[in-house]
Design a protein around this nucleic acid. Structure first.
Length: 253
DNA sequence: ATGGCTTCATAGTGAAGA
């Protein structure tokens, strides 16, 4: 089963690239983040024409998540239970007996901002919810933009980023708390090239110079991790005209 | 260089992303 995730930074702008990527890679599941489109305006017909079902939870301008899949998802949840949040950042569904959690974690802006506090509270609530999900669904995958570079090797210049949002000790601790639930960072189950990243700033020719961060992840429960065959980052779409600033991530289980 | 690009909501610029 091919499980993937991509922060598309506007599905409206990126739709042709998403359809193209689906036809090239034929994943069973593609989790989208930052769709930035209200549900009434979701491009369902175009996705169906590409041979995929879609679940979506969106809002205008910001955030928004969707799960595209060959098989129809069931048992859908579109908010973290017991966490009051207006922002559309999670979508869970059961597809082919695998629990798929599509996630767009808050950015945090800067470590001294209210948004950073919101990010840490959000990550704690997300963790709590996953505990319950893992009890119900042993075969579980968390896919998406967690907005955390878990280790220094996931950062092009750890010194320059030290203490910054996305790499701060509190955020990295929150990432480790996810691993403590029994989830595995699928990318690190395999030998990987040095300086592997999933996001590059639009500015400063950051992609050409590979000045990036690895903040998009596929986390797998132990039942899925034990049968994981590969976990990769596809940098090809980042080279396209008008690319998303994020690359798709893909794991085969 | 506290910006650099890109998107969205706007009809001038400003917010937000990471």
């Amino acid at each position: 089963m091919r499980l993937s995730a991509w922060n598309v930074n506007s599905l409206k702008i990126r739709l042709p690239q998403v359809v193209d990527w689906l036809s090239t890679n034929r994943p069973d599941v593609l989790c989208l983040q930052e769709t930035k489109v209200e549900d009434e305006k979701f491009p369902l017909a175009e996705i169906q024409a590409a041979g995929y079902q879609a679940l979506f939870s969106g809002q205008k301008t910001y955030n928004g998540v969707a799960i595209l899949s060959k098989q129809q998802g069931k048992e859908t949840i579109s908010a973290i239970p017991a966490f009051n949040d207006m922002q559309k950042r999670v979508l869970a569904a059961t597809i082919d007996n695998v629990r798929v959690i599509c996630v767009y974690a808050p950015n945090g802006q800067s470590v001294d901002s209210d948004k950073y506090r919101y990010k840490l509270e959000w990550l704690a609530a997300f963790n709590n919810w996953l505990k319950d999900e893992l009890v119900r669904y042993p075969q579980l995958a968390v896919l998406g933009d967690l907005n955390i570079a878990p280790e220094d090797r996931d950062v092009h210049d750890p010194l320059a980023w030290e203490g910054n949002v996305l790499v701060s000790p509190e955020e990295r601790q929150a990432f480790r708390e996810l691993l403590k639930l029994g989830l595995k960072d699928s990318f690190r189950l395999f030998e990987q090239p040095e300086k592997s990243f999933s996001w590059w700033d639009y500015r400063m020719s950051a992609f050409r110079r590979n000045l990036g961060l690895r903040i998009d992840h596929v986390l797998l429960s132990s039942a899925l991790a034990s049968c994981c065959k590969s976990s990769t980052i596809d940098t090809k779409p980042r080279q396209a005209e008008r690319p998303s600033d994020h690359a798709p991530v893909l794991a085969v289980v």
